[in-house]
Design a protein around this nucleic acid. Structure first.
Lengths: 174, 174
DNA sequence: ATCATCTTTGACGTTTACGGAAGAGTATGG
DNA sequence: CCATACTCTTCCGTAAACGTCAAAGATGAT
């Protein structure tokens, strides 16, 4: 599954030269670039690969990792799921697995296996998507509520300040 | 700051008897009650105190912690911020610190010194509230965006399933 | 060929947020 | 007074998610 091995062309002018027809999988990026684009550290990226969040990247003849554009996107997604939703890597892995199933289904759909299998996959994928959507909704709800609180506080604070500024103090004199 | 030391009346009938006039700070709760009401563990609660999320609770003569109703509310808040918003304890601490500052300013305001002092306090409080609001807004924004993605995926997944169910395959025949 | 960077694989260290057990003391119904 | 249940502090352990060297090799530019 997944043919992805040491390619022949590692470097290929990274910075302006748009390769003419002939490339099959787009440009590949070295660790440094990916680090810059994702804001992650090399260690983190390697760790993600280690725990199976990414399929092992292809390598140069010397052993340097080469990431595809899809890898970069995946890493950005991972970071978002982590920081925005507070997902653990395990949860993220599950999420990505669902995505993979979705992609598989799309492919399988086109390559048509049997309907029962596809339905089974869909049925398993849906509740997970559902629960995640629910989780997002709940979080948005709570955050919105919290936001309202803070906004009200800010408003009151400003009102107070204005009152003081206009000399409209609670106790004018004694 | 904060007068809060070993009180004289620890037990005082916890479960039905509403104390008549005379209590100044409401009923105090033992660890077990707090645990039941918050769903937290004693260890976690002690840990929160240890890292300064709560001001150290008062104690019985023997050293048992006694929590106020405010403590319980705070613990519930902590749990919410943690599980629902995915805040780290550090972030929660910061949030609570802001709240404390706000409360302090409110007190100072009510105890009214001169107008200049009050204005100064308000001016210092505002940017903090502002940044908190901005943080929440950003989070809500990203979450909403993520939500849209998920909703779309779910919709597509359902569409696919329906297509399969109705036998509406891509290739009807060859 | 050579130097300055990068990258790799270990391997061990660190932080966060508690869990769990030990040993001792406290609270309380009977 | 006593048994039983709770609680205290202390200290060690842990799982997750990397951080941080170290030693060695790989790349790219000069």
């Amino acid at each position: 599954m997944h043919i992805k091995e040491t390619p022949a062309e590692p470097g290929h002018a990274p910075g302006g030269g748009i390769g003419f027809a002939g490339e099959l999988e787009g440009p590949l990026h070295r660790m440094e670039d990916v680090v810059k684009r994702t804001g992650l550290t090399p260690r983190a990226i390697r760790y993600y690969e280690e725990v199976g969040l990414l399929t092992a990247a292809s390598r140069t003849a010397g052993g340097f990792r080469l990431f595809t554009e899809a890898d970069v996107a995946l890493l950005q997604r991972i970071k978002e799921l982590q920081t925005l939703l507070g997902f653990s890597l395990a949860e993220i892995k599950e999420t990505l697995r669902i995505d993979a199933v979705r992609a598989e289904i799309r492919q399988a759909y086109e390559q048509a296996t049997d309907a029962r299998t596809r339905l089974g996959l869909l049925d398993r994928a849906e509740p997970v998507l559902h629960s995640q959507l629910a989780l997002i909704d709940e979080r948005v709800g709570r955050l919105t509520q919290l936001r309202t609180e803070y906004a009200e506080r800010l408003a009151r604070l400003r009102t107070l300040r204005e009152q003081i500024r206009t000399g409209d103090a609670t106790e004018p004199a004694r």
